[in-house]
């Protein structure tokens, strides 16, 4: 009786959570939005922005670092940190322009758009696994007849989502570079027109790998980092897959601040970020922040590699979207 009761209540809790899920996020969003509108002006709150289709999962990665940084900004009147999620780059750019967001961290393609559209300033580069660069790999089943990019004509390929640098902008750019004509599919199960490369968004790296493995699509694009991450691509799948093309290296992740952020704040934020890996609390915050090793100041090489993406991006937007 007691047991079944607890089961019942557990079930109810689950269903409530499920039912209220979207509503809760919407409420959270509105709340954050409202407070940002008020607080951004006198800068008592430091607001971090992020692109995410999974705000619930993402916030836990951001808040420790934000709090770590905010702790050093007390002398500037900053009392706390807040996170705002956005669905796409345009939305995020808009927040930056309106000074609703002070700090954003993202991948190269999104960073470029924020720089270009909102005048955001890159202040630090993300280092992971001893590298601040990464690349895209294209893979197919080992038993497929695709050996080069060119072989993708008339085939289908899985991308992740439209914000992804490594799983959209870079591979789409590679297709264009190879003279292929990508065309979006209604469903990954659809067959492309002859000569065209059909693409579909899989949302997750894991789906991309599964699609290829299950022959839903012919190929997929992921970062080399994900390719080597067994959690994203199960080993059982990868054994049947092989990489047949790679992109040039691009910066892994870039931290940006809005234009017009007081200089003393900018300096302090940068200093805190660059030194974060020096203490335990900082390391913990970094680990939470997408398993970052440390932040480094952008070198000219870094910026060059970043800006080198600009034509790819423009071409993808113009020719693919």
């Amino acid at each position: 009786m007691l047991k079944s009761g607890s089961q019942q209540s557990a079930g109810r809790t689950t269903s409530l959570t499920l039912a209220a899920g979207p509503l809760r996020y919407l409420t959270l969003l509105l709340m954050l939005l409202g407070s940002a509108l008020v607080l951004a002006a006198d800068q008592r709150v430091l607001v971090m922005g992020r692109l995410s289709d999974d705000p619930g999962g993402t916030i836990g990665r951001l808040q420790p670092l934000l709090d770590y940084v905010v702790a050093d900004l007390a002398e500037f009147g900053v009392e706390r940190g807040q996170v705002i999620m956005a669905r796409d780059a345009n939305q995020l750019a808009s927040y930056l322009r309106q000074e609703k967001v002070d700090w954003v961290g993202d991948t190269a393609a999104v960073a470029l758009q924020l720089i270009d559209r909102a005048g955001a300033e890159p202040i630090a580069m993300v280092n992971k696994r001893g590298s601040k660069r990464y690349r895209t790999v294209l893979f197919a089943r080992t038993d497929s007849d695709i050996d080069t990019i060119a072989d993708l004509a008339g085939k289908t390929i899985a991308f992740q989502n439209t914000s992804s640098t490594s799983a959209y902008y870079l591979p789409a750019g590679m297709l264009l570079e190879a003279g292929l004509r990508p065309a979006i599919l209604v469903s990954p199960l659809e067959k492309p027109a002859p000569g065209v490369v059909g693409y579909a968004f899989s949302r997750l790296e894991a789906n991309s790998a599964a699609w290829v493995h299950k022959r839903v699509v012919d190929a997929a694009a992921v970062s080399d980092q994900d390719w080597n991450d067994a959690e994203r691509i199960p080993t059982s799948f990868r054994d049947d897959l092989r990489v047949f093309a790679e992109s040039p290296e691009v910066p892994r992740g870039i931290e940006l601040i809005r234009s017009g952020l007081p200089a003393e704040l900018r300096e302090q934020i940068l200093e805190t970020l660059l030194n974060a890996h020096q203490d335990d609390e900082g390391r913990r915050a970094l680990a939470a922040y997408f398993r970052t090793d440390q932040f480094t100041e952008p070198t000219s090489d870094d910026l060059e590699a970043l800006y080198a993406l600009r034509p790819w991006l423009r071409r993808v937007r113009e020719e693919v979207e």
Binding site: L18, P188, R203, A210, W211
Partner: peptide, 18 residues
């Protein structure tokens, strides 16, 4: 019934992970 409703989008998008 719950699965039937929850699986609409994932199935539509072949979102195997979801």
């Amino acid at each position: 019934d719950y699965l039937g409703q929850a699986l609409v989008n994932p199935l539509f998008y072949v979102d195997l992970r979801s």
